[in-house]
């Protein structure tokens, strides 16, 4: 599902970062481990098509990302990827349900309200459907972010430090829910983190240190 070969990236004049080659199969989950500054986020952004201008090859769902135009990449991202970030980036002007609906709307997929409700229910926050996102706790907000990431049934879910802002209890809940949702949607889950608490949750691990 995700294949990386000879990948390196450099910001401006700085020395480039070289990434190890790896490949992740469909429905397989993987942890990208590394300290701050090791390039986890950079790698995740490259895999998600958020960052371009790399050298080497990145193939996601059978498509070489470098071959897509900016607009085509936007569309590809909308249909094939779901994102969960460290601090949930929910749109504060919208309610929980409308935040979810944004995913199919922006990806130009048919909007399915019952599906949105089911996802919220499976994450245990169905009653927050009409709440403002500013009224949610960190843990609840992260669940909404997960719901939004899986709503379009993307084959790949990319999570950047999804748990590092959470306490132990929420951390365990969020990673379990992530894995559970990824399995339910038969998606490949890639988690970039330095959070040691996740080490025994996902078997396949790629280390970016050195």
């Amino acid at each position: 599902m995700v294949t990386v070969k000879n990948l390196s990236f450099s910001y401006g004049n700085q020395e480039g970062i070289r990434f190890p080659d790896f490949s992740i199969n469909k429905s397989e989950h993987c942890l990208l481990l590394g300290e701050s500054g090791s390039g986890k986020t950079t790698l995740l952004h490259i895999l998600g098509g958020l960052l371009r201008g790399y050298s080497g090859s990145v193939e996601v769902a059978g498509t070489e990302l470098a071959s897509l135009s900016e607009t085509a990449l936007d569309r590809f991202r909308g249909k094939h990827m779901g994102f969960v970030f460290q601090r949930n980036h929910l749109i504060s002007a919208l309610t929980v349900e409308k935040n979810l609906i944004m995913a199919p709307y922006l990806a130009e997929l048919p909007v399915n309200h019952t599906q949105a409700e089911e996802v919220l229910k499976s994450l245990g926050i169905a009653e927050k459907k009409n709440s403002k996102v500013t009224e949610l706790s960190q843990g609840q907000a992260q669940r909404v972010a997960i719901a939004r990431a899986v709503l379009n049934n993307p084959p790949v879910i990319l999570a950047d430090e999804p748990t590092s802002a959470l306490d132990d209890k929420s951390c365990a809940q969020v990673i379990d829910l992530l894995i559970q949702q990824a399995n339910a949607h038969q998606a490949t889950l890639l988690v970039a983190t330095h959070d040691q608490r996740l080490k025994d949750k996902i078997g396949k691990q790629i280390s970016l240190n050195g």
């Binding site: 958020l50 607009t71 936007d74 991202r77 249909k79 504060s92 002007a93 944004m102 922006l106 939004r148």
Partner: peptide
Amino acid sequence: RYDLAIMRSMGATRLK
């Protein structure tokens, strides 16, 4: 800016 970036990550084109 974060909202806009997130919208891009969800597939919104720049034109949108």
